[in-house]
Design a protein around this nucleic acid. Structure first.
Length: 414
RNA sequence: GGAGAGUUGGCUGAGUGGUCGAAAGCGCCUCCCUGCUAAGGAGGUAUACGGGUAACUGUAUCGAGGGUUCGAAUCCCUCACUCUCCGCCA
């Protein structure tokens, strides 16, 4: 949720800022909601105050054994009025909240302006793509079986077999160990989250279609960002502990309703994939620099795997709902002769913290923390990158050196 | 899944219909006293939202939601969680 005070203070600026993120803020509706809310709230509280004093009076009279019919009637009529008024207040607050939950986070001042993907800004790169074209990962190895998965579940799933399955496991273990080296505390988490958690991090109510819903209040998580961030929902954190650095490997589930026809082949876009996630919760003054360090932690994994990648800063038009600033890490995928997103590192500023009520105390006042998250990395896509970039173009996938302690083998003969 | 007990402020813990946002103790903060890392004294010390330039002030919150009542931490219902016992299971 964005700070409503900002809208009150400088509506035009907020409007323009959101517009750069392709969101048309309805200022008239906002004003109307705010006015209604204020009226109904003051009125309700006023009536409650009246009821409280009159009830006290009534009680004192009662104690003396007296009755007062007028007083009784007065209380009765206040109650009727109060009921109506507080109902209106509840309704207004509900619709106002729905309205606010729909508004995306404001882009940071430093975020480049732009309409979409093509206007993202390349920041830096690492390594040189050595292989271009050639077989893709499905053609390289039969240890990725999409036909079998299709029988088991449907499209956009995969069965990994033998050394490829183990390679993915090695990648995950390696990533978690790197995260630990960087000071992140590992977590094992529920893969199911409730609506409240998903609302706090911004997936709900707006993006319900992207989620697999199990029952009324059970959803499969689309990312470990949800449970990790919600670990601190409704809490006041001691600022001494900042920054909180959390990590977890989880399976992620995405229904990706909007993406049919895109990346239909291979492991790029799946309903289910493995990911190691980094989350930091920090002081608002430090979140800019925290994003840089969190991104560098994700990058270090690609560097140690010696995979060519580039870092791209998303422009305002391509920014996610909860993010104020985002760096995408894009790894070289030889068969596609292009860089593909393998990690997305975002500063969500106080947007999630406001929804989740994640606060800390400073000089006796409680303030909202800033939350950041990033993949380090998406394991399925890293697996593709390793297979394709380490394929010798004949019959062997070489295992990157840093993974060999984990796999216990040095190559996969095909 | 069955039976029972419980859930109060940072912590311990009192409170079974009104004067209770809540005793007392601990902790913490400020000040006083004290020539010394102690003891004593005074005051302060929840969260959220609203009104007000401010001093200040209103409302709500005693696990959550609903109900009874002029009035609910206190009575009733539903749910969640914790603990104990039984059953079942990885």
């Amino acid at each position: 949720m964005i700070d409503t005070n900002l809208i009150k203070l400088d509506p035009k600026q907020v409007f323009e800022s959101l517009k750069s993120k392709k969101y048309e803020l309805n200022l008239e509706a906002f004003d109307a909601f705010e006015l209604d809310r204020k009226n109904f709230q003051t009125q309700t509280e006023d009536l409650q105050a009246q009821r409280n004093t009159l009830s006290k009076e009534y009680g004192l009279l009662r104690k003396e054994g007296k009755e007062d019919k007028t007083l009784n009637d007065q209380i009765e009529s206040i109650k009727i009025e109060l009921d109506a008024c507080s109902q209106k207040l509840t309704d207004t607050q509900g619709s106002f909240r729905d309205f606010l939950l729909d508004i995306p986070n404001l882009p940071s001042d430093s975020t480049p302006k732009g309409g979409g993907e093509s206007e993202n800004v390349k920041m830096r790169d690492f390594g040189k793509p050595l292989i271009s074209g050639g077989k893709d990962h499905l053609d390289i190895t039969s240890l990725i079986n999409t036909e079998a998965a299709n029988i088991l579940a449907g499209s956009r799933f995969a069965v990994l077999v033998g050394k490829i399955a183990k390679l993915q496991r090695a990648l995950i273990a390696f990533m978690l160990d790197k995260a630990e080296e960087h000071g992140y505390q590992e977590h094992y988490l529920p893969l199911i989250a409730n609506a409240e958690s998903l609302t706090a991090t911004g997936q709900l109510p707006k993006f319900a279609d992207d989620l697999f819903q199990l029952t009324d209040d059970y959803f499969l998580i689309p990312t470990a960002e949800v449970p990790l961030t919600n670990l601190y929902r409704d809490q006041i954190i001691s600022a001494d502990n900042f920054p909180l650095k959390l990590t977890a490997h989880t399976t992620c589930f995405r229904s990706e309703a909007g993406s049919y026809g895109k990346d239909t082949r291979g492991l790029i876009r799946q309903h289910q994939f493995e990911k190691v996630e980094l989350v930091q919760i920090c002081h608002p003054d430090h979140s800019d620099q925290t994003l840089e360090s969190l991104t560098s932690h994700a990058e270090s994994i690609l560097q140690e795997l010696n995979l060519p990648y580039q870092v791209v800063e998303l422009c305002t038009g391509d920014l996610g709902f909860s993010a104020a600033k985002t760096y995408d890490l894009e790894v070289w995928v030889p068969s596609q002769e292009t860089f593909r997103e393998i990690s997305s590192c975002s500063n969500c500023t106080d947007f999630q913290a406001r929804r989740a009520k994640i606060r800390f105390k400073e000089d006796g006042v409680s303030r909202l923390a800033h939350t950041l998250n990033g993949s380090a990395l998406a394991a399925g896509r890293t697996l593709i990158a390793v297979i394709e970039n380490y394929f010798d173009q004949h019959s062997t996938i070489i295992i990157p050196e840093v993974l060999q302690d984990y796999t216990k083998f040095k190559s996969i003969e095909l």
